[in-house]
Simulated scan of single mutants.
Amino acid sequence: MYEKIETTVQAWQVLRDEISQQLDISAMEALIIIFSALIDGQVDRDDVDSEQIAQWATVTKKFNLTQFNSAQKRQIFQLVVVGSMMDDKLQANYQITPDAIGMWIGFMVKELGSNYKLPLHITDLGFGTGNLAATVTQVLEDDRQVELRGIENDDTMLTIANGLMNLLDEQWQLDFADAITLEEKVPTQIVIGDLPVGYYPNRDIEGYQVYQGDEEKLPYVHHLLIEKALKMLDDDGVAVLLVPAQLFKSEQAPALLNWLQTDDVYLQAILQFPKELFANPAANKHVLILQKSGQHATQAEPVLLAQIPQLTDKEANEKFIAEFDQWFKNNPGLKVQA
């Protein structure tokens, strides 16, 4: 099957490069055209005639994607998107969340939602291309119903994510919005997110405790999104967030730490990934698990500080999973309640 996947990826790349060169556009823009042709045979561009669109749509049918299951389709998607991002030399915040990380997030979300009998409402507040959400739903959908909402403020990324949703035959609610200023509240038991790192371009924001206003310094967007995750959650809900490893070492960390000590939130776990997962040490990320206060939520004892092992180390993985399961059993308030 790997040879079929490789052949399909190559065919996709050939068509992408042809479109990119013909229209003088980026690889990601060409990828959007392929998704449009693949989904409904329509391309919303004035510089392309109907005959050319029909030709591209015919080529996409030769991909024969029906021969692949969801996991294989997602693998194809990853390889094509990563290659396109490399061609366009996109910055780190645009990179997709790798499976070696996404599968662990899915495992944690599955544990957190195991007691919830109704459809589990999950919001990804930094949706990107949707690969993290797709990985998590793949882990969960074997045994439960999931209703997923994705929020993204980059229209190119959201369009790619819409292509992934159609490719996998999912029914996600995708919102083109800035999560920081979004006021709409919907039922949400779990928030996930591979948070973008950097400065938020607006000092004039209200209602955030992690930023008290500074005439000289812009707020960190990842700090704001951490607090926003808690605002989005129902009472007792849990956030599982990918954050920079140096989160608590920045000049704005004191305000974040002060907020984490309020009655609104419980800091339940900080989990480190193997450094080998990150080619650039500065890109190293941790998992931050936070819980919103409510009727059932309590402070976990102890706060879990642990190292996630390499996926290839079977013995270490079994030990970590056993310890993680025991920690959950010792802290039943962590699981979202029906």
Rank of each mutant, 00 (worst) to 15 (best):
Y220M: 15
V139E: 10
Q42L: 12
F176H: 13
Y200N: 05
T97W: 00
D143R: 08
A255T: 11
G106W: 08
F35G: 09
Q10H: 15
D17F: 09
T188V: 05
P201T: 06
P302Y: 10
A179G: 01
E276Q: 13
F127W: 01
G102I: 08
L334H: 07
I33V: 15
L182I: 07
W259G: 15
F176D: 03
V14W: 08
I32E: 13
A245Q: 13
D264T: 12
M85I: 13
Y208N: 13
R144Y: 09
L311D: 01
A306D: 08
V48P: 00
L257H: 11
W56H: 00
Q189L: 00
L311Y: 05
R45G: 00
A37P: 04
E141M: 03
T97H: 03
V186K: 09
L260D: 12
A239G: 02
A322Q: 14
L38F: 15
L233K: 06
I32F: 02
N202F: 08
S50F: 11
L90Q: 11
N93P: 09
V197L: 09
Y94C: 09
N162V: 13
S20Y: 02
D178C: 12
Q310Y: 10
W172Q: 01
A229F: 06
Q326R: 12
M28W: 05
G294C: 09
N280H: 13
V191K: 02
E216F: 12
Q307F: 04
A322W: 03
G213I: 02
F273Q: 00
A133C: 08
N131D: 10
A133W: 01
Q261F: 09
S250F: 04
G113W: 05
Q55H: 03
L288K: 00
Q10N: 15
K231L: 14
E251P: 04
I34E: 04
D49M: 07
Q268N: 03
D143Q: 11
D47Q: 03
G237N: 07
I33S: 10
W104Q: 01
L224R: 03
G163V: 02
L218A: 03
Q252C: 01
M232P: 06
V303F: 03
S26W: 05
Q291F: 04
G333C: 15
N330M: 11
S20Q: 00
I192R: 02
I270H: 05
K249C: 03
Q291S: 07
K319H: 10
N131I: 08
T8V: 04
R74M: 10
G193R: 07
A229I: 01
G198T: 04
Q13F: 13
W327N: 10
K285P: 01
E147T: 14
W104F: 01
K73C: 08
R203E: 03
V9C: 11
E206P: 11
I151V: 14
Y211H: 06
G106Y: 01
I32T: 02
Q307N: 11
D263L: 11
A297G: 12
V80H: 00
Q91F: 06
A245T: 00
D143W: 13
A297W: 02
L233Q: 05
A255K: 15
L230E: 07
Y266R: 05
Q212K: 15
Q138N: 11
P302E: 15
R16M: 08
A322E: 09
V210F: 08
D214F: 02
D142S: 14
D175P: 00
I122A: 03
E111K: 14
D24Y: 12
Q272T: 14
F107H: 12
I160Y: 06
L15P: 07
L23P: 09
D46V: 14
L148K: 08
